[in-house]
Design a protein around this nucleic acid. Structure first.
Length: 426
DNA sequence: AAGCCTGGCAACCGCGCGCTT
DNA sequence: CAAGCGCGCGGTTGCCAGGCT
């Protein structure tokens, strides 16, 4: 189908907008709204095509546009969403822009192309796939031994995970579940929860591990410092819980999620996004708290009401645990499951672990992430890169403020849902 | 000081989707 | 059902300012 561009019409101006044109356009829209863009130029007295007017308005003149340098938070959001969306569907800058309300898709696109892409490339990360380039972490003999170490850690993780799941199943058998196994929602959710909680950006973290490191004392002190700055600081990891009785072994997976920059505040009442809805541990300086109830209660935290008491949720949890199998999982299954659960449970604002948006192929093909803090060496020159890595870490280690968290992830959920269902909502 | 190069950004272009007729 | 329209999206282009030689 298609049609010729409206700007081919004779007599219509192209190129940079003058101040006078801007004023005309703004005055018209402020008074009448834009209405039909095609009809707007004539009504506003502009020798422009409607498309040009729309672009000028949406990308420049709109009053709610925030201009200037992108903040670290904004950068992180862009990176996170690019990593999430870029791999699974045609990248939608508008979708990313939707998470940065005062930024335009065009601005974000330009920023990505001119800044972030280059920085990722410098880090040895393929900006398209968000995966580590081959020569960035596997090239040396030293790295080979590291990879062997990584495999060892992976085995440890998997062992720990299975132990924990076994324990939870054992516990759950003691109490009758409230959710029938035959309920589709439970069955599919079971598939979700059964997946190993492998973070989605392992390659990047490996690259980071190799390119940027600092003594483990420093990482501890940094963590402490940040924690002191904000008492709401938590480390969280199901593996931390599993190893909570171990020595403070930095080789253990407990340290995995503690890479600098990921240690960002999560308030006590913030919805905790555990990678696979399994119990997790929070470490708040001196105390380690079992967050099992919190991690499951998060199902209803954002829309908690009397119709869905915690008991019901725990029943769901128990059933899920009982049905826990490591079956193969398709992306569509995830979203269907989530939607089914949302619909049937009434938990409209259920928060979905971000890892769910990573393709299962990626999850199963990735090594377990191991952050070997003994090689850490943080330098000031890495601050920009740190921001980037913050973005990656935040994909699965959510660091948003409580008030933003719910809307943020719901938006992403809706966004991905919409994309998967083929609808064009942007 | 002048010419060249490079990076950043505003704007353009073509395509595709949804809606209407 | 098909064709046309309106709009939005992502990719690309071209201008301009600043840095470099």
């Amino acid at each position: 189908m298609g049609r010729s561009p409206c700007c081919e019409k004779v007599g219509l101006k192209k190129g940079p907008w003058t101040t006078e044109e801007d004023q005309k356009l703004m005055a018209y829209i402020e008074e009448y709204g834009h209405g039909s863009w095609r009809a707007l130029p004539a009504k506003a007295g502009l020798q422009r095509c409607g498309k040009s007017c729309r672009l000028r308005w949406t990308n420049y003149l709109r009053p709610d546009i925030k201009r200037g340098k992108f903040s670290l938070q904004e950068e992180q959001t862009i990176i996170q969403l690019h990593a999430l969306l870029g791999n699974r569907l045609a990248l939608q800058w508008s979708a990313i822009a939707a998470q940065l309300p005062k930024r335009t898709d065009n601005e974000i696109k330009n920023y990505w192309n001119t800044h972030l892409k280059k920085r990722l490339t410098k880090l040895g990360i393929d900006p398209t796939t968000h995966k580590l380039k081959a020569d960035a972490y596997g090239g040396s003999g030293d790295c080979q031994s590291k990879n062997a170490s990584h495999l060892s850690h992976m085995a440890q993780w998997e062992n720990a995970r299975l132990e924990a799941e076994t324990r939870l199943v054992r516990e759950s058998k003691l109490q009758p579940g409230s959710c029938s196994n035959t309920q589709p929602t439970c069955l599919v959710l079971n598939k979700i929860t059964a997946r190993p909680s492998v973070p989605p950006c392992l390659d990047i973290l490996k690259a980071w591990q190799n390119s940027w490191s600092k003594p483990q004392q420093q990482i501890t002190s940094q963590t402490t410092t940040k924690a002191n700055m904000d008492n709401k600081m938590y480390q969280h990891s199901m593996y931390a819980m599993m190893h909570s009785t171990d020595d403070d072994n930095l080789e253990s997976p407990t340290s995995t999620l503690n890479f600098p920059g990921t240690m960002l505040p999560i308030t006590t009442t913030t919805t905790i996004l555990n990678e696979n809805l399994l119990p997790l541990t929070t470490t708040d300086n001196n105390t380690t708290t079992n967050m099992e109830s919190e991690s499951w209660r998060h199902l209803s935290l954002t829309n908690h009401n009397n119709n869905h008491p915690d008991e019901e949720l725990l029943g769901e949890k128990r059933t899920i645990m009982e049905n826990n199998t490591l079956s193969n999982l398709q992306d569509d299954d995830i979203m269907v499951a989530v939607e089914a659960f949302r619909t049937s449970s009434g938990y409209d604002n259920i928060v979905v672990p971000p890892v769910l948006f990573t393709t299962m192929e990626e999850l199963s093909s990735n090594d377990a992430m191991v952050y070997d803090s003994s090689n850490d060496n943080l330098g000031a020159e890495h601050e920009e890169n740190l921001a980037i890595m913050n973005g990656y870490g935040s994909i699965y280690n959510v660091n948003l403020e409580e008030n933003n968290n719910k809307h943020y992830w719901n938006s992403i959920l809706n966004l991905v849902n919409d994309s998967l269902s083929g609808s064009s909502v942007f």
